[in-house]
C-alpha cells in the first residue's frame, strides 16, 4: 500500500513538472501555431537564473524568503526571455509556420550552447531549502517534500491559469483566438498582443518548472530542458493542442504511467509505454483528449 501511495505521489510530482512545461507549450501552439522548440531553453533559463540569484542577488538565498525571491527572479527571467523571443524572432515570421519552427530549433541549439559556454556542461548543485530535502509521511509512505512542492505549485498554476482564461478580458481573447484566430482578428482585436502575452506566460511557467525541477533533482545542467521537452511535447499532443485542462489530464496520465511501469517493469519501459500511449491516442483520436479549446 505504501509503495502505491509513494509511486502515485512521485508520479504526480513528475506530472506536475510536465504540466508546467506543457501548459505554456500548448497555449503557444494553440494560439500562435508555433511549435516552440526553444521552450526547453526557457526552462533552463529559469533554472540558471534561480541558481544565479540564490548566490549573487542581494536578499536572495538558498533558504526561507530568500529562496522565494530567487525563484521569483528566475520566473521573471523566463517571462522576459519568452517575450523577447516572441517580439524579436517569431513576430517577423508571422504565419510562416515552418520558418518559425526552424528559428526556434536554431535558438534551442544556440541557447543551450551559450549556457554551456557560460556555466559549463557539468551539472551544478542547486541551492535548496533544507525542508525540501526531507520527507513527509503520507499514509505510511515517505514522500519527498520537493515532490509535494511541485504538485502544489502545479495545482496553483493550473488554478491561476484557468481563472485568468475564464474571468479576464485577455483570457477571453486568448480562448477565442485558440478556437478561431481569423474571427478574432476580423472583430478588430489585435491578437498579436495576446501572442506576446502567451509567450510570457509560457516562459514564466517553464521557468518555474526549471526552478522547482532544480530543487527536485538537486542539480541544474544546460541539457535538462531538452530531455523534459520531448515528454512535454507528448503531453501536449495527447492532451490536445491548445488545451490547458487537456494538458493537465495528459500530464497526470503520462506521469503516473511512467512511474508505475518504470517501478514494476524494467527501468525505461515506462518511457516506451508513454510513446505507445501517444500512438494509441493519435490513432483513435488524432485531435487529442480535449480537442482545440483552451479551457475545456
Amino acid at each position: 500500500m505504501s509503495t502505491i501511495v509513494l509511486l502515485t505521489l512521485t508520479g504526480l510530482g513528475l506530472a506536475a513538472l510536465y504540466f508546467l512545461v506543457a501548459s505554456g507549450l500548448s497555449l503557444v501552439f494553440g494560439l500562435a501555431d508555433v511549435l516552440n522548440f526553444a521552450h526547453g531553453l526557457f526552462l533552463s533559463v529559469g533554472a540558471y537564473a534561480t541558481w544565479w540569484a540564490a548566490g549573487n542577488l542581494p536578499g536572495a538565498g538558498p533558504s526561507g524568503f530568500g529562496f522565494v525571491l530567487a525563484v521569483a527572479f528566475g520566473v521573471a527571467a523566463g517571462a522576459v526571455v519568452g517575450m523577447a523571443v516572441e517580439l524579436v524572432m517569431i513576430r517577423p515570421l508571422y504565419s510562416r509556420t515552418i520558418e518559425q519552427v526552424l528559428v526556434t530549433v536554431g535558438l534551442s541549439l544556440a541557447g543551450v550552447a551559450l549556457l554551456q559556454a557560460t556555466w559549463g556542461a557539468d551539472p551544478r548543485p542547486f541551492p535548496r531549502p533544507d525542508w525540501t530535502q526531507r520527507v513527509t509521511s503520507v499514509l505510511g509512505a515517505k514522500v519527498p517534500n520537493s515532490g509535494i512542492l511541485l504538485i502544489l505549485a502545479a495545482a496553483l498554476v493550473l488554478a491561476a491559469l484557468l481563472g485568468f482564461l475564464r474571468y479576464t478580458r485577455y483570457g477571453l481573447v486568448i480562448r477565442a483566438g485558440v478556437e478561431n484566430r481569423e474571427m478574432v482578428t476580423a472583430l478588430g482585436i489585435d491578437v498579436r498582443k495576446a501572442f506576446t502575452l502567451v509567450f510570457a506566460i509560457g516562459g514564466a511557467a517553464a521557468a518555474l518548472a526549471g526552478a522547482l525541477g532544480g530543487v527536485y533533482f538537486g542539480s541544474v545542467s544546460p541539457s535538462q530542458g531538452g530531455s523534459l521537452l520531448i515528454f512535454a511535447f507528448i503531453v501536449v499532443v495527447i492532451g490536445g493542442m491548445g488545451s490547458v485542462v487537456g494538458s493537465a489530464y495528459a500530464a497526470v496520465a503520462v506521469g503516473l504511467l511512467q512511474q508505475f511501469v518504470n517501478y514494476y517493469g524494467t527501468s525505461g519501459a515506462g518511457d516506451i509505454c508513454v510513446v505507445a500511449l501517444l500512438a494509441i491516442v493519435l490513432l483513435l483520436r488524432p485531435q487529442g483528449i480535449a480537442g482545440r479549446a483552451a479551457t475545456t
Partner: peptide
C-alpha cells in the same frame, strides 16, 4: 503518416526518442 504537419513531426520525434531510450538503457 496517419497524422500530418506538426503532429507528424511530434510523432516521429517520439518514435526516435524510444530508439534513444532503448539504446541508452
Amino acid at each position: 503518416l496517419r497524422t500530418a504537419g506538426i503532429a507528424f513531426a511530434m510523432v516521429t520525434l517520439a518514435f526516435a526518442q524510444v530508439g534513444a531510450i532503448l539504446v541508452a538503457r
